[in-house]
Design a protein around this nucleic acid. Structure first.
Ligand SMILES: Nc1nc2c(ncn2[C@H]2C[C@H](O)[C@@H](COP(=O)(O)OP(=O)(O)OP(=O)(O)O)O2)c(=O)[nH]1
Ligand SMILES: [Mg+2]
Ligand SMILES: [Mg+2]
Length: 580
DNA sequence: GCCGTTTTCGGCCCGACTGTTTTCAGTCG
C-alpha cells in the first residue's frame, strides 16, 4: 500500500469511530479528506516536502498534522487512542450493508454486541425481540445481511471492462422490454474508474413504475434490495449491485449529472449553487420553485456559468474551478491514437499472429504499429527475425499501416559490437531490474542512447497498487532528461496510474500510450487512464502521425509544479464532443 | 474538522426508500 492509501484507510476508520461516538460533522470531514488523499495523483510525502498538504481539499491544520505524524512515525496517535475505545469487531458490524453508526452504537451499548458473530448469535437467541425500533422485518433483514456478508466479501470491485459488458447486456434487455426514451450508464463506470463498486444506470421513461418492475424482474437478478417509484437496487449475477434511477425527460440532464458524480464533485457543485442562491438536485437547477435547467448536463453546468466537462475528471480535483474559468482541458481520445508502439514480437512469429494484429490495428484506425524486440540478442539474429517480420507484414497486406521496428535496451547497459541499433527505427529503454522484480530506480549516469520512450516501468507487483513514492523518481528523471514515459492499461505490470499520468504530464513529461502486455484492444483502457489523468492530445507522443522518425520527443515546458487545484489549459478542441 | 468576493464563527448537499413510527430516523445513493 502506498502512503496515500494507508493514511486514507486510517481516516476512514477514524470517521467510523467518530460516528460511533455520535460526532456530527467530523466523520464526514475525515471521509472527505480520506477520499481526497486516496485519489491524489502525487505521493503524500512529496506533497508534504513542498508544504502542499493544505492544498488538498478537506485537509486543514489538524489533518495536516496527522498526516505529517504518519509520515514521520508511521502511526497516528489520535487514531490509536480512538481505536482503543471500541473492540475491533464493531467496525466490521458497521460495515454490514444496512447497519450504520446508530444501529451499531445501540447494539454495542444496549446489548454488548461487538462483532457480526455476536449479532448473529443474539438474533438466534431472540435477544433483539422487543428492542425499541426493531420489528420482525428489520430482524429478518439483519439475518439476511449477515448471511450475505458471510457468503461473499462485500468489498470486491469489478474491472471496468466487465462493468461495460454487464451494462451493455442489461441496457439491451431493458430497452427491448420497456418503453424507455433514454438509457445511460452513470456512476463510476461512466467516469471510467478502473474498478467499479457497482453499476449505476439512468433511464427516462413514459411509465417509470413499469420500467422499474421490468428491471427488478430481469433474469439475472438474485435479490431486489429495494424498489420504489423512481429507483431500484438489485443484486445481479454474479453478485454485482445495480442501481437504476428513472426520471422524466425534463430532468434527464440533472439526473445524469447527479448520478454520474463523483460524490465530492456533486457536493462541491451543490454548495456553490447554494451560495449563488440556487438549488441543485437530480431534478434540475432551481431558483426558488422555478426550474432554470435540467434537460441536459450542459444546461446544468451552464446555469452555474460553468463549462461542461468530461465525466472522467469529475473527481473534485480542481475541475470545478477550471470549469468556472472556462478552461477545461481537452482530453486525449481513442480516435486520436495513431498506433501502438510497444507490441512484442513473439519467439516464433507466424501468419495468424500477424493477421490478428493487423486486423485489430485497422479496427482502431491506426496509421502504424511498432513491433518490438526484447533486449539483447546478436545483430545477426535480429536481422533474420526482422526479415521474417517484414515478409509476414507484407503478406498481411496492411494497407494504410506503416511498420516501425523497435528494440528494447536496458538502461545503462553496454553492448558488445556489432551493435544492432541501426537495424531498428527506435529504442525503448527499460529499467534495469537488477534481479528484483519491482520498483527499479532511474539511472544516475547519463543516457547512453536516446530512447523514444521508457517502458516496462514495473513500479508495483503485478496487479498491485503502485506506491506513489515509486513513480516520483521516474517522473523527475524523465522531466530532467526530456524523455517520454510509457502509460499502459492495468495488467501484468503496474506502471504509472491515472494519478501518476497527471503528475507526469503536468511536469511536462510526454506520454506514450500503449495497450500493455494484454490484447491490443486494451489501448482503450489506457486511454481511459490517461483521460482520468487529464492528459490532453498534445501530451501524447503517439497521437502524432510522425511519432517515430521525427526527432526525439522534446520536453514541453512544465505547465506548473504538480499540485492540487488550478491548471492552465485551453478548452476542448473544436469538434470534440461536449455532451456525449 | 474544514472553510470563507456575503462569514475566522457558524454553517456543513440533497433526496429516495424502508420500517416503524403516529410524524420520522436511519441508511444509502
Ligand atoms: N449529491 C450526492 N450524490 C451522491 C451521493 N452519494 C452518491 N452520489 C451520486 C454520485 C455517485 O457517483 C452516484 C452513484 O453512487 P455510487 O455509490 O454508486 O458511487 P460511484 O458509482 O461514484 O462509485 P462506486 O464505484 O460505485 O463505489 O450517486 C451523495 O451523498 N450526495
Ligand atoms: Mg457506483
Ligand atoms: Mg450505486
Amino acid at each position: 500500500m502506498s502512503t496515500n492509501t494507508e493514511v486514507a484507510q486510517i481516516f476512514y476508520a477514524m470517521a467510523d469511530l467518530l460516528d460511533l461516538q455520535g460526532e456530527r460533522f467530523k466523520p464526514d470531514a475525515y471521509r472527505r479528506a480520506a477520499r481526497s488523499v486516496e485519489s491524489l495523483g502525487e505521493d503524500l510525502r512529496k506533497v508534504a516536502q513542498r508544504g502542499g498538504l493544505d492544498q488538498i481539499p478537506g485537509v486543514g491544520e489538524q489533518l495536516r498534522e496527522k498526516i505529517l505524524e504518519y509520515i514521520r512515525t508511521g502511526r497516528i496517535s489520535a487514531y490509536e487512542k480512538l481505536r482503543a475505545t471500541f473492540p475491533p469487531g464493531v467496525l466490521e458490524l458497521m460495515a454490514i450493508p444496512g447497519i450504520g453508526p446508530k444501529t451499531t452504537g445501540r447494539f454495542y451499548t444496549e446489548l454488548h454486541l461487538d462483532s457480526p458473530a455476536a449479532l448473529a448469535q443474539a438474533i438466534d437467541q431472540g435477544r433483539l425481540n422487543g428492542l425499541a425500533g426493531f420489528g420482525p422485518k428489520k430482524i429478518e433483514n439483519l439475518r439476511e445481511a449477515l448471511r450475505a456478508v458471510a457468503a461473499a466479501p462485500p468489498s470486491s470491485r469489478i474491472p471496468l471492462l466487465a462493468a461495460w459488458r454487464l451494462a451493455r447486456s442489461i441496457l439491451q434487455e431493458l430497452s427491448r422490454r420497456t418503453p424507455v426514451d433514454a438509457l445511460e450508464i452513470a456512476g463510476s463506470v461512466r467516469r471510467c474508474r478502473e474498478n467499479c463498486g457497482d453499476l449505476d444506470l439512468l433511464a427516462t421513461s413514459a411509465r417509470p413504475p413499469e420500467t422499474i418492475a421490468v428491471f427488478a424482474g430481469l433474469a439475472g437478478v438474485r435479490k431486489v434490495v429495494m424498489q420504489g417509484d423512481t429507483r431500484a437496487t438489485v443484486i445481479h449475477d454474479p453478485g454485482i449491485q445495480i442501481d437504476l434511477r428513472v426520471v422524466e425527460p425534463v430532468s434527464f440532464g440533472a439526473a445524469w449529472q447527479y448520478f454520474t458524480g463523483s460524490k465530492d464533485h456533486n457536493i462541491h457543485l451543490r454548495t456553490l449553487a447554494r451560495d449563488a442562491g440556487l438549488k441543485i438536485n437530480e431534478y434540475g437547477v432551481f431558483r426558488g420553485e422555478k426550474r432554470v435547467a435540467g434537460a441536459t448536463e450542459a444546461d446544468v453546468y451552464d446555469a452555474m456559468d460553468m463549462q461542461w466537462m468530461y465525466p472522467e475528471i469529475r473527481e473534485n480535483q480542481g475541475e470545478i474551478e477550471l470549469a468556472q474559468q472556462k478552461k477545461i482541458p481537452s482530453l486525449i481520445q481513442i480516435e486520436q491514437i495513431r498506433g501502438d508502439l510497444h507490441r512484442h514480437i513473439p519467439d516464433a512469429p507466424d501468419r495468424s499472429w500477424m493477421k490478428d494484429l493487423v486486423t485489430e490495428a485497422r479496427r482502431w484506425k491506426f496509421q502504424y504499429l511498432g513491433l518490438v524486440e526484447a533486449p539483447g540478442g546478436s545483430a545477426a539474429s535480429h536481422r533474420s527475425r526482422i526479415q521474417e517480420i517484414r515478409r509476414l507484414w507484407n503478406e498481411a497486406q496492411p494497407e494504410g499501416l506503416r511498420l516501425h521496428l523497435g528494440w528494447e535496451v536496458v538502461l545503462g547497459k553496454m553492448m558488445d559490437p556489432p551493435d544492432p541499433e541501426s537495424l531498428f527505427d527506435y529504442i525503448i529503454s527499460v529499467p534495469d531490474k537488477k534481479g528484483s522484480a519491482i520498483s527499479p530506480k532511474p539511472p544516475t549516469s547519463p543516457l547512453l542512447r536516446r530512447p523514444l520512450f521508457v517502458g516496462h516501468l514495473s513500479l508495483g507487483a503485478p496487479g498491485a497498487e503502485v506506491p506513489r513514492e515509486a513513480a516520483g523518481p521516474w517522473i523527475d528523471w524523465a522531466q530532467t532528461n526530456g524523455v517520454a514515459l510509457e502509460l499502459t492499461a492495468a495488467g501484468a505490470e503496474e506502471g504509472l496510474d491515472a494519478g501518476g499520468a497527471r503528475w507526469a504530464h503536468e511536469a511536462g513529461v510526454v506520454l506514450v500510450l500503449s495497450a500493455g502486455a494484454g490484447a491490443l484492444s486494451e489501448i482503450e483502457l489506457t486511454v481511459c487512464r490517461a483521460r482520468r489523468g487529464w492528459v490532453p492530445p498534445d501530451g501524447v507522443l503517439n497521437s502524432r502521425a510522425d511519432a517515430v522518425g521525427a526527432t526525439a520527443p522534446k520536453v514541453s515546458k512544465p505547465k506548473r509544479p504538480p499540485r492540487v487545484g488550478r491548471t492552465e489549459r485551453r478548452g476542448p478542441a473544436a469538434g470534440e464532443r461536449t455532451d456525449p
